[in-house]
Amino acid sequence: MKAVLIEESSKRLYIGDAKEPVPGDDELLVSVKATALNRADLLQRQGKYPPPQGASTILGLEMSGVVEAVGRHVTEWKEGDRVCALLPGGGYAQKVVIPAAMAMPIAEAFSFEQAAAIPEAFLTAFLNVSILGRAAAGDHVLIHAAASGVGTAAIQLVRELGGIPIATAGSKEKLDACRTFGAKNLIHYKEEDFSAKVSEITSNRGVQVLLDPIGASYWQQNLQSIGPDGRWLLIGGMGGYQVEKIDLQMLMRKRIQLIGSTLRSRSVKDKIDLTQQFIRFSKDRFHNGALMPVIDQIYSWEQVMEAHAYMEQNRNIGKIVLRVE
């Protein structure tokens, strides 16, 4: 089969030959129609984020496609079914193998490109906002990088849970988009102190849930923004990982739950459980339009380097998708 490979010396991506995967008894072989970019792909290409042990070394943490073959123990899927799924790697390829229990049905109205934009963004948001963050009706939820794939998914999930999304982003265009997805309050972090604005929005109470892909550079403002008994989900380090001074007294006084969270390193069982919970929550909502994948750009996989360069510019609103041809 063909797959996107990494030229080690230049770190450039090219389409070459790779070994076709073989499904096990409880797995599906899927013919990939589309995949989507994640920041982990950029880091892995640069040699800074190796895949988990045993995972494919091919880039790509999600995909959509058509079931080509089923393992002999699989009864819930058949050849020809349209599915999308989270992956530990391997999405930038013509074929991929997945556990049958991790496959998600694609809503009839969705294209393969739309479906490819769902798994990583929505499962990350669902895990952190709903399961770990326990966001509930009436909760204020602060969402950083809110125009990203995860951010746009999180806004929609908070809205569906009855919460109040507070979105931060770095441009009016991105904030306007966040409003259309359901963000009740918008903060332009380049023009105002987001912690002061959060205090104003919440009448000095702070937020109950904080979704943080930024890390170190937002530490102090996040500490000011989160309220008593708040759940702070640290899911990335776009602003660095080293914090020089940490006020443990404030963490204790506010009874803050600081939760470090990554999805890729979780066990297959955990990912299956998460996928099944999300299917129950989202299936009807994807069918009736309450939840929608958000796509900024669609590239042919032959344009994969252009797609990576575009993500590196941090211009996207929603997901960047590769059409596999």
Rank of each mutant, 00 (worst) to 15 (best):
D17C: 15
L28S: 04
V30R: 02
V30C: 10
A34D: 04
L37A: 13
A40R: 01
D41P: 00
A55Y: 05
S56W: 07
E62Y: 05
S64E: 06
G65E: 09
A69M: 10
R72H: 11
W77Q: 08
G80D: 12
D81M: 01
V83H: 01
C84N: 12
L86Y: 11
L87H: 07
P88S: 15
A93V: 03
M104D: 06
P119C: 09
P119I: 06
P119D: 12
I131F: 13
A135K: 01
A136T: 15
H144S: 10
A145T: 07
A145D: 09
A146H: 05
S148V: 02
A153Y: 04
V158M: 02
G162Q: 04
I164P: 00
G170L: 03
S171V: 08
K174I: 02
D176Q: 04
A177V: 01
G182Y: 05
Y189N: 05
Y189P: 00
E191Y: 15
E191M: 13
E200G: 04
S203P: 00
G206C: 02
V207S: 03
L211V: 05
Y218A: 13
Q221F: 14
L223C: 06
S225W: 03
G227Y: 04
D229F: 14
I235K: 00
G236W: 00
G237C: 13
G240M: 06
Y241T: 15
R253M: 15
R255D: 14
I256D: 01
G260L: 02
G260T: 04
V268D: 14
T275Y: 02
Q277F: 12
F281Y: 11
D284W: 03
H287V: 15
N288L: 06
A290M: 10
I295A: 07
D296R: 00
Y299E: 13
A307E: 06
A309R: 13
E312M: 13
N316H: 14
